[in-house]
Structures are given as structure tokens and as C-alpha cells.
């Protein structure tokens, strides 16, 4: 069967079959953070909590770094990662700023500029 043509959009990772397989364990852990008890368990013993989900080394390193681009590269999907970010009180503008290398104020200004 012919390989389907993959589309490339700069600065964007489409969450496709490749990402969905690669990121399954990481996303499953992040999905568990819908429950406060699980968020608390993660905070209490991060290493043990990650071990329960069998994260691979790249995913473990990405979780430890709190780096969203690295989490995406490890297969993370932003809808689930948002629940992970929530543990640290980070909102979507914090993670937007982090990914674009801006301060939060600069990132907010960028959004305002889009309305001009």
C-alpha cells in the first residue's frame, strides 16, 4: 500500500498515527491527571508515578524538564499535556510563551496584535 502523503506545517506536529503510538504511555499518564487524587500522587512521588505508566527515557526526560516542545517530540498530545501543565498552575499562555521563547507578556502582545 502506498505510504500516505504526510503534510508538513512549520512549528506544528500533527497528532497522527505515528505520534499516537509513540506517545501512548505519556498521554495515558496525562489523561490520568483528570483526577485530583492522581495529580496529588504525582506530586508526592513523581518517579514512582511515572514508573506506573512505563514512560520511555525520552518521555521521562521530557516530563522532568517540563518542556512542552520536548513533551510533544516524545509523542505528547496538547489536550492531555494541558492537564499535566495544570499541575504546575500553568495556563495555555504560559505554555505558548515557553514554546515560542517569549515572555508571557510578549506572547499576550502577539495575540493582541493578531486582532489589528
Amino acid at each position: 500500500m502506498a505510504e500516505q502523503q504526510r503534510v508538513s506545517i512549520p512549528g506544528t506536529t500533527l497528532f497522527d498515527d505515528i505520534q499516537a503510538q509513540k506517545g501512548y504511555a505519556l498521554n495515558k499518564m496525562c489523561f490520568s491527571f483528570n483526577d485530583k487524587a492522581n495529580r496529588d500522587a504525582f506530586k508526592a512521588d513523581e518517579a514512582a508515578y511515572c514508573a506506573r505508566f512505563g514512560l520511555n527515557p525520552a518521555q521521562l526526560a521530557a516530563v522532568q524538564s517540563r518542556n512542552v516542545l520536548q513533551l510533544i517530540a516524545a509523542g505528547g498530545n496538547v489536550y492531555y499535556l494541558a492537564k499535566f501543565a495544570g499541575i504546575f498552575g500553568l495556563d495555555v499562555q504560559d505554555i505558548g510563551a515557553q514554546q515560542t521563547g517569549m515572555s508571557k507578556d510578549e506572547f499576550k502582545q502577539k495575540l493582541l496584535n493578531a486582532g489589528q
Binding site: 506544528t12 516542545l69 505554555i95 506572547f107 502577539k110 495575540l111
Partner: peptide, 13 residues
């Protein structure tokens, strides 16, 4: 809107 990646914050009015 776009939440993820280096392209985060993309808007197209």
C-alpha cells in the same frame, strides 16, 4: 488558534 508547537499563538483573523 493553536496551543502547541513553535507556531503556538497562531491566529488568522
Amino acid at each position: 488558534h493553536q496551543l502547541d508547537g513553535e507556531r503556538a499563538g497562531f491566529i488568522n483573523k
